[in-house]
Every structure is written in C-alpha cells, then in structure tokens.
Design a protein around this nucleic acid. Structure first.
Length: 1104
RNA sequence: AGUCCCGUAGCUCAGUUGGUUAGAGCACUACACUGAUAAUGUAGGGGUCGGCAGUUCAACUCUGCCCGGGACUACCA
C-alpha cells in the first residue's frame, strides 16, 4: 500500500526548486521531445534575445506564453523542438562597448582597432548570458540552451549571405540613396535610434522666410490668373535648402486664394497665392471687394479662389538659379498628400535632396534633384556667392545675425523675393556625438526591394492567425500597405558585413553567397596579385574589409563598407539557425514555416516583419502560421518600468518569493496577453492564496482520507451510472471544462484557459463538490459510494494536474506524480510533461445536470440569504423551503424531476428538513411582467416605448390571462398587436405572508417556524460544533475516539437526549455522559446561545 | 505627425450579433459557516462605463471628433 504524500503546507518556491532538480536529474525536457520522435512536429521559433541587457519581468511574461503553447502541444502528442538563440549584433551593443571603454565612434580605427573593438563587442554581448540562462531555468521555460543559434557565428552569417545572394540574384538587392538624418560634423548617417537619444531634439530658434515663386506665363496660367506677375508663397525653416529647390507641393483638396497685397519690404503691389485658411496668419484683414484705399502690407484683397488640384503642373521660375536640377523636369507644382494648413502657406517648398517627403514626391513626379551642399555640410562651388559656407551649425544658431540662413534671406529680400521674414522656434534634431544640428541628406544605401512583393506579402499576411487580430490587420496590415523598400545599410562596425564587392567605378560588382565562393574569389584575386591567399576565419569586419577581389575585367573590387540591418539577422533565423542550405536541409524542411511564434507587440515592424519579408521574397511562403504579440508589463500604477524610476521588478526575486508557478499563473490569468499588464505582486499573492491553495487543499483533503481508508486506486472503476448525482455533475463539469480549455489553448487564449480552470477549481471542485462530499469520505468502511467519491475526486485532480501543466509546470508535475505514483500495480510515472493532455469524453457531459446544479447553488444562496435576513443561524434546522415553479406544464415536470434529484444536497447544505414544490401558483404568487426588449424590439420598432409602458402596467389578472393563453392582444397606436408569451418575461415577485427571495427566475420561500423539536436539534448542532472545535484545539487526530461529559441543565438536556446518537456519531464519542457538574480543570464552559450555557469535557479514548 | 492598442467600482478585470437594475475578484464593514480550508457564504457601501456629438424605439456596445496612457514608425514646409 503506497501512501499519498501529505504536506504541512504549500510551499510553491520549494516545489519549484525540487521539481527543477528533478527535471535536471532526469532530463525531462529532452525526454519530452524524444518521446515524440516520429510524431507530427509543431514548429516554434524562438525570437532571439540579446544578452547584453539584464532580463526583466516582461521577459518572464513573454517566455511564459511561448512555453505554455510548446508544452501544451507536446502534451497533445506533437514533437516540439525549441532551439534557443542569441541576438548578438547591433547598435545597443556598440554603444555599451563604447561606454565601457570610454570611447566614441570616432576613436574606432584610431584609439582602438576595429579588431579589438569587435572582440570587445563579442564579449560584451554575452555579458548577462548566465543571468538569462538562470532565469530561463528558474521560470521553467523549456528551450534548448545547449545548442542555440548565435547570430555572430560564421555559419549563421554564411546563411545570411546566402539569403542576400538569393535576393541579389532575383534583383531584389540594389544600391540607391535615401534622404537620411546626417551629421555633417561626424560625417555619418544617424539611425532613428540615435536621434531618439535623450537630448538630441532641442528647441532652437531659426530664421525662417516665406518666399515668392513666380508663375511662368503660359496658355494655362493666362486663363487662370489675371494679367501680371503671380507668385506662389512657400515658407521654409531651412532657407539654406532654397538654392536646391526643385518643385512646390500643394494639397489636392486645400482651398487657395489669389490675393492682392503690398510686399512689406519693397512696398510694391503684388499678387500672391496661399491657402485661404492661412490668410489670417499673414494679414490682419482681408476683403473680397477691391478697394485701393485699403491696400497695404497687412491687408489682402481676395481676387480668386482655387482648389489645390487646379494648380497641378503649373510651372514657376527657379528661385535661385545657381544650377539646374538633374534627372527630371523640375519647377512644377505637385500634389502632395502630406501638405497641411497647420503652418506656413499651405504650399511646400520641395528640395528633394534634403527631405524624405520631398524626395518621395519628387521621385513620383519625375522632378529630378539638385544637391548644392557637400558631405561636409558646405555649399558647393556652384553656389557662387556662398560657396564653402557651412549651411547649418550650432554657431549659426547662437549668433543668428550672421547665419547662412539669414544671408540667404537677405539676398532674397534684396531681390524682392522675400515675402515675410520671421524667427521661429521649433524642435530640431542634433547629433548626439558632436552636438551639431543634423541635416537631411542623400546617402548611399543598399535596399531590399520589398515593394516588389508588397501585394504578395499582403496576401500571405491574410493567412496568418494574429492574436490579437487587430495587430495583423491594423498595425501590421497598414505597415504592409505603406511599405517602402527596406534600407539594409548601416554604417557601423559590429554586424554582418554586406557581402558585396565593387570596382571603384561601380561598373562591376559581385555578391558573395558562401564562404566557399569567397575563398574561390580570393584565390582568383591572389592569382591576380591583389592579395595574399588567406583562409577565411571570421566573416566580420575588419577581416572582410581587407579582402580585395578581382573583377572579370581584372579590376580591383572592394567591399561595400556597410553592415546590414540587424533585423535581417533575426529575420533570417528560420534558415540560419540550421546553417541552411549548407547543412541540415532536412531539419529546415521539417521546421518551416513555424506553427507558432510569440513576441512583444514592439516586434511588429521588427521581427514579425523581417521574418515575413524574407520568407515571402525567397520562399513565397509565410514564416509563421500563428503569431501572438504580447503587450507590455507596466508597474502597478501603469507606468513603464525602468531602472531610472526604480520601479523595475526583479524577476529572480519575485520567482524566489512566490514560486515560478504563481508568477506564471498571475501573468497569464490577469490580463489578455496582448493587453498591457499592470504588475502588482499583491496579485501574485492572491493567485497563490486562492487558486493554488484551493487546489492544494483539495489534494490534502483527498490524501488525508485516502490514506486513512487505505485506498490504493486499484479498485474497479465504478460505472458513471452508479455514481451519485454530485459525482456525475462534477465529472460533467470537468469534461465540459476540458473541452473549453482545449479550445482556448488551441485558440492561443491562455488567459481564458487559466480563468476557466481557476473557476472550476475554486468554485466547483473545492467549494462545492468537496464541501458537499465531505461526509462521504469520513464515513466508516469502504462502501461503493465512498470508492466512487475517491475515484471521482481522483479523476478531477488528475485532470487538473494535466490541464494546468502548460501554465504551472512545477506544481502540476508534483501533483500528478503524487497522485499517479500511489497506484499499486502501475509503473512509476516520471512527469506530467510526458503525459497526454486530457480530452473530454462527451458522453460524460450532461448540460441539464450542470444547469440543475447551478440551480441548486442558487437555491442555497437564496436560502442562506433569507437566513441572514431573518437572523436564523444555519445550525438551526428549519422546517421547509417552498419553491414555486413555472406553471407551464412541460417545463414543470422537468423542473420538478430535477429538483427532486438535488433536493437532498440542498437541504443538507442549508439545514432545512423539506423542500416543497408549488405548481399551482395561481392566487399565491404575485407576478411581475416586463417586455422582452430584444424580441419585441424587432417586432415593434418605434412603438417600443409605448408598449413597454403598457406591458409593465399589466395587472395580475392580465398576466394570468397571458400565461394561460400564451398570447394577449393589445391596442397600440390604433393597431391591434398580438403579444406572445415570448415577447415578455414574467417573473414571480412575491408571496404575501412568506419570507421570500428571488434571483432571476428562481424563487425561494422559507418557512421560519421553529418547533421545540427543531430547537433541540439546533442546540445539539451547536454542541457538536463546540465539541469539534475542542477536538481541533486539542490537536486530536481526525480518527481519535473520545469520551464526552456534559453538564446537564434544562437548556440542553432534552436536546442531548433527543439527539444522542447524532452527537456521538458526529464527534466520534464512544460514550456521552450527562453529569450534574464537572470540577476538572480541562472542562470547558460553553455558550450555546444567549440563554443556554453548559460545560463540556472531552477525553481521548485510550485504546489498550 | 501617422498607425495601432488601452480607458468600465479604490485596485485587477468580464461584459455575447446594440435590448432596459452594468457584473466578478481583491480591498473595506457587519454577520454567518467551517474536523480539507490563511477557504467559503450572505448583506452593505462604492460607477455620470474617459468626454462630447451622432445613428437607433433602445448605445458600455456602432460612427465621428476630442481627452488621457502606451507602443511602433516617422520627423515635415
């Protein structure tokens, strides 16, 4: 006979540690994968974290989600391999190293060699690897940390190169340029990450100017405008870009006005065009009627109105004719969707070389471009009078009187092209290294032509199951709709080098797709004498930079100096983690695309996108079929967690304190994974207290009595039909639960699964089934009813262990093994994670029974409510409950039959002797009628209000008629309308002269008469309660027999005599003696109620 | 600035295709129950469902605008 283990208390952290050790000793994770060999694979991709930062509580969240579904699918019979990974490249690592070494990017190659710098990055990136591995282990996240993929590995990089070459071959990799934030002082482009560093955006005052662009007179403009010079007005905060102006943009639907006014500097009359809405910004007054008297620089006379679209294609004269734009037809008015009337004139000056919007709109319209500023931020020689002048510096801003901007403005003023000159304060980005203002500048970049497969990406995205759906259609979908080519280039040091070599004149280039190919090219180059024959050992900089290849025409080819965007690294993981296609072709084939991935919602345009893009471009496939994007973990006040605010939660500490299961359960059950979670440790304590303790208590109760009764669980299963109503009910509820929970896990709805389980354990299993079954367990002997109770409870606990296993893997394992390993003959089980997820047996589900039990619970709660209301303690037995049931015959018989079944349970629970069902309620019940808005609303529409009033005014007689005839004719707004019984809801409201309570359609009346007999029984119960408490206080075992002595008096005597057997049985008293007095010290005086007192002595019966 | 998510009781969250007294848990108060129970039951207080407008017989629910929190992307005359 094996014993079920019993515990003093529930210690979740200790269970965590013990199970962890067990998993380690027994290689449980490996086994869980191994035993599914040959089964259908369920593919999961691990999004690689970067180990150069400490893991936080949000990582526990994200990884719990990943872990849950992998464990679940394993238990469903799939083989779920989980290869870990490390993201190792990127700017944050470079910044960390620079901080550590106390250097800046300028020092690289000077104070420190690229070689040493990259070596430092390689070390730095794994700084917290130990911590990550420790957390992974402690939180119970099963992922293969022994054989992770690492993005800086040569093999990994080689796979990435292969992918790049494939893109190259398809013509999807090209060199172009975009307008990017550029630090002329540092000579480098800046990433948005760099621009978002604190302090980069500063409020500065700039000299701005509204300038006049003169319309060219041609056939079109002659028709549109009055004779004479007409000017478009455009405002700029960067006058230095005006020499490079190539176009003007207007808003298609914006209203513009042609006005006559005086130029405030020349004093001459002038006709200008600007957005009508913005007239007040430029003029104090404006008129529709011409009046010469009123003409001055602060007033405008509106001569004509236009819509922006009418201006499209109008030509204007170049403002500052230093040089002609190349590559297009410039100096035209374009339509731009970005044009607003928030400030300026509603007409935007376009310099395609110095603005991203400008570039885009110019390209779309074939405008060409003009770049009159060099890479040092100085005007080129073409700008004769300003040549060599720095266009935007912090000095300029300091002494505004002498800035280049102002010089340009003054020149324009002199030429009578300036309309208004103002100072303007705004936020402007600065270089975080040099502190100089950033300019936007065209820079060479390598691009992936994602726009070429845009439609296909959108199409494939529609086949992906997004959780939540809105992320897939909204954030991700919109992103795809507005896709631009993917800028791969990064001017950095620590990353995957772009494997493209070019001749200096760019006439020839080669994209390398493997190490072998590179070595072959090196041999050729060595043969040509361009470099020594070398073996390739590291695919990073600076080694790759040192390689010079030879072109087919015999020219030297140098590597394009850029690194690639680290997002490409991680997006390439489905292939590169296997070193595909150089190795593991089969492994790759079996694991693509992924069935499931999960990461933070911040990865939408990051990892989710890059996975999707690469898979779509190269494999015409999705990269993942299901994706769950989880929200943030905020502090309990809803603030973002940060080290700076000191509100970051240490995941190690929390896991140690509450145990990994409680933390995981809390994170999962508290909010939908995609909603932000306000993390509050009180919540974890509550999960511990309520859910885990209820489950543990249920197990403890089970173990306590099963051990007493020496149940060994080898008994034959008692057929369901022979079990009690209560057993059949909880098994039905259990099977329903299985169906729901399985559905939720399948739908990637872990919160709903957790809550459903929680409700079952706390409300149904612990608080109803066990509570009402207690007596069955402590009754002597091993009757078949008792065996049935054990079997039922065992089934519930066993299923619970397996159902919670994905979320609470530690306690689940303990519970499962404790339960299973008591079976006498059975083989020892090792772990719940090697078992199968329980599936429902549909025959066991009985919805009627579940509904019936819900009614029983309702009746109990109503009765207890009444007891409370009339101050009738539950220990006082009462005579009867009356229950009116519907007068519809067919509902009636079913309801009555049902109530008969649960009668006993209810009566025992609320301590009442009888339940009487009243079917003939006429004359007894007072009923209330109200319209069924949903039904009737459809039928009546706007007559609802009137109908509602009328129906609620029905008297008892009318209600009765309605019930009997099942319909009722009324007059509404002159029309006769037949109300059917379904159009209304009739509920019982009151029974005059009774104590009643109702909830919904359930009504309970309580007979509160207390007879002498009932009173005695109540007293007996009180005594039992006191005696039980005394047993407990004295730490008697549940099975200890006792001898009882009670001091007799008129208050208790008849109660004891009349309930002698009952008292003895309940308290396990072998003898009960009524005595005149007790003088022993151990006697306890008790108060039964206000007027009745006595003394009791209990002693353990000495078994000899 | 754009896109997306969130806003319901002091706190954490439910709330079906729109249907009339908006729910649960925690916390608080009182009472009750308890030989599995740091549990549970009953009752109570606590809400202009972020705001305004619209659609509708009917809006927490649908639409628009606005406010607040957050994320991502971008940074513009």
């Amino acid at each position: 006979m094996t014993h079920l283990p019993e515990y003093d208390s529930l210690n979740l952290p200790a269970i965590g540690n013990e199970i962890l050790k067990k998993w380690q000793d027994e290689n449980t994770f490996e086994k869980s994968v191994k035993i599914r060999k040959g089964s259908k694979p369920f593919t999961f991709y691990e999004g690689p974290p970067s180990a150069n930062g400490m893991p936080g509580i949000h990582h526990v969240m994200a990884r719990s989600i990943k872990d849950i579904f992998c464990r679940y699918k394993t238990m469903k019979g799939y083989q779920v391999k989980r290869k870990g990974g490390w993201d190792t490249h990127g700017l944050p690592i470079e910044l960390g190293v620079e901080k550590m070494l106390g250097i800046t990017k300028d020092d690289i190659g000077k104070k420190i060699s690229i070689e040493d710098y990259n070596a430092a990055c390689r070390r730095e990136v794994m700084k917290y690897k130990d911590k990550w591995e420790d957390l992974t282990r402690k939180m119970g996240y099963w992922v293969d940390m022994e054989h992770p993929y690492v993005t800086f590995d040569n093999n990994y990089i080689e796979s990435v190169w292969h992918l790049l070459k494939e893109l190259y071959k398809k013509g999807l990799l090209y060199k172009g340029y975009t307008i990017q934030p550029y630090s002329w002082a540092a000579g480098t482009g800046l990433s948005s990450h760099e621009l978002n560093q604190p302090g980069c955006y500063k409020n500065i005052k700039d000299n701005t100017v509204t300038v006049q662009f003169k319309v060219v007179q041609d056939k079109k403009t002659e028709k549109m405008f009055p004779k004479g010079d007409i000017f478009f007005l455009a405002w700029t905060t960067t006058p230095w870009t005006l020499p490079s102006n190539c176009a003007l943009a207007v808003g298609k639907n914006i209203e513009y006005a042609l006005v006559k006014t005086l130029n405030r500097y020349s004093g001459k009359p002038v006709r200008v065009i600007l957005a009508r809405e913005l007239l007040p910004k430029y003029f104090d007054e404006y008129f529709d009627e011409y009046d010469d008297e009123k003409l001055n620089s602060d007033t405008a006379i509106i001569e004509k109105n236009f819509k922006g679209s009418e201006f499209e294609g109008i030509r204007y004269e170049q403002l500052m004719p230093y040089a002609k734009p190349e590559g297009g037809d410039a100096f035209r008015v374009l339509l731009g969707d970005f044009v607003t009337t928030e400030d300026g004139t509603g007409i935007v000056h376009i310099a395609p070389s110095f603005g991203a919007d400008d570039f885009r709109v110019a390209k779309q319209n074939g405008i060409g471009s003009l770049t009159l500023v060099d890479r040092n931020g100085k005007f080129t020689a073409a700008v004769t009078d300003f040549a060599g002048r720095q266009v935007k510096t912090k000095e300029d801003q300091a002494k505004q009187d002498n800035s280049t901007d102002l010089a340009i403005i003054l020149k324009l003023k002199k030429e009578e092209k300036a309309f208004k000159i103002e100072k303007y304060e705004h936020n402007y980005p600065h270089c975080w290294r040099t502190d100089e203002p950033v300019i936007y500048y065209p820079l060479d970049s390598w691009f992936v032509k994602t726009t070429a497969v845009k439609e296909r990406m959108i199409e494939l995205n529609k086949t992906i199951n997004w959780k939540p759906e809105a992320t897939g259609t909204g954030r991700f979908g919109n992103w795809l709709e507005n896709l631009v080519d993917w800028n791969l280039s990064r001017s950095r040091f620590w990353g995957i080098p772009l494997p493209v070599w070019r001749t200096e004149d760019s006439s020839e280039e080669i994209c390398i797709g493997s190490v072998a190919e590179l070595e072959k090219e090196i041999s050729k180059s060595a043969a040509a004498g361009f470099m020594k024959q070398v073996k390739v050992t590291d695919l990073h900089r600076p080694y790759m930079d040192e390689i010079v290849l030879v072109s087919t025409k015999g020219k030297k080819m140098f590597r394009e100096p850029d690194l690639i965007d680290v997002w490409f690294d991680s997006g390439a993981m489905p292939y590169a983690q296997w070193h595909y296609p150089f190795e593991n072709k089969e492994a790759f084939g079996n694991s693509f695309p992924a069935d499931f991935i999960a990461e933070g919602v911040d990865q939408t345009r990051g990892w989710f996108f890059t996975l999707h893009a690469i898979a779509c471009m190269l494999f015409d496939s999705v990269a993942y079929k299901n994706v769950l994007s989880n929200g943030l973990v905020l502090d309990k006040h809803g603030n973002k967690m940060s080290k700076r605010l000191g509100n970051a939660v240490d995941p190690f500490e929390v896991i140690e304190k509450y145990g990994p299961d409680a933390v995981r359960w809390y994170l999962i059950s508290n909010a939908q994974p995609w909603d932000n979670l306000k993390f509050d440790r009180e919540g974890i304590a509550e999960v511990q207290r309520k859910f885990f303790r209820a489950l543990y208590n249920t197990y403890s109760f089970f173990a306590l009595y099963a051990n007493i009764d020496r149940i060994d669980f080898d008994e034959k299963q008692i057929p369901l039909a022979e079990r009690t109503e209560l057993d059949r009910w909880i098994l039905s509820a259990l099977n329903s639960l299985m169906m729901k929970v399985e559905g939720y896990y399948n739908d990637y709805e872990p919160m709903r699964a957790a809550r459903e389980i929680e409700n079952f354990v706390v409300a149904q299993l612990s608080n109803w089934y066990v509570r009402l079954s207690r007596r069955r367990f402590w009754r002597g002997g091993n009757s078949s009813d008792k065996i049935a109770a054990y079997q039922t409870l065992f089934a519930c606990l066993d299923a619970m262990a397996r159902m919670i296993a994905p979320i609470a893997p530690f306690y689940a394992d303990r519970l499962y093994c404790d339960l299973q390993n008591t079976r006498k003959g059975g083989a020892k089980v090792e772990s719940v994670h090697l078992s199968r997820f329980p599936s429902a047996t549909e025959e066991n589900i009985n919805p009627d029974l579940e509904e019936l039990m819900a009614t029983a619970q309702k009746i109990c709660s109503l009765t207890l409510g009444l007891r409370k209301k009339y101050n009738l303690p539950v220990r006082q037995p009462l005579k009867r409950i009356l229950m009116p049931v519907s007068s519809t015959p067919e509902i009636n018989s079913k309801a009555i039959a049902g109530l008969e079944k649960i009668k006993k349970l209810v009566l025992a629970e609320v301590n009442v002797k009888e339940l009487e069902i009243i079917t003939d309620t006429s004359g007894v019940l007072i009923k209330k009628i109200k319209p069924n808005f949903k039904e009737l609303g459809k039928k009546l529409g706007s007559l609802m209000k009137e109908a509602s009033g009328m129906i609620q005014g029905f008297n008892q007689q009318q209600i009765r008629e309605m019930e009997q005839n099942l319909e009722y004719k009324v007059n509404l707004a002159g029309k006769e309308i037949v109300l059917t019984i379904n159009d209304v809801e009739i509920v019982s409201e009151d029974i005059p002269g009774w104590h009643i309570a109702t909830e919904g359609s359930t009504m309970v009346a309580l007979d509160v008469t207390v007879t002498k007999e009932l009173k005695d029984e109540g007293i007996a119960r009180e005594l039992v309660s006191r005696i039980q408490n005394m047993r407990k206080e004295r730490n008697f075992e549940v099975t200890d027999k006792i001898v009882l002595k009670i001091v007799k008096n008129s208050g208790v005597e008849s109660a004891i005599v009349n309930n002698f057997q009952y008292i003895c049985a309940e308290t396990l008293a072998e003898s009960l003696e009524l005595v005149e007095s007790i003088d022993e010290i151990s006697a306890e005086s008790v108060e039964v109620d206000d007027n009745i007192h006595t003394s009791i002595i209990i002693n353990k019966l000495n078994l000899t």
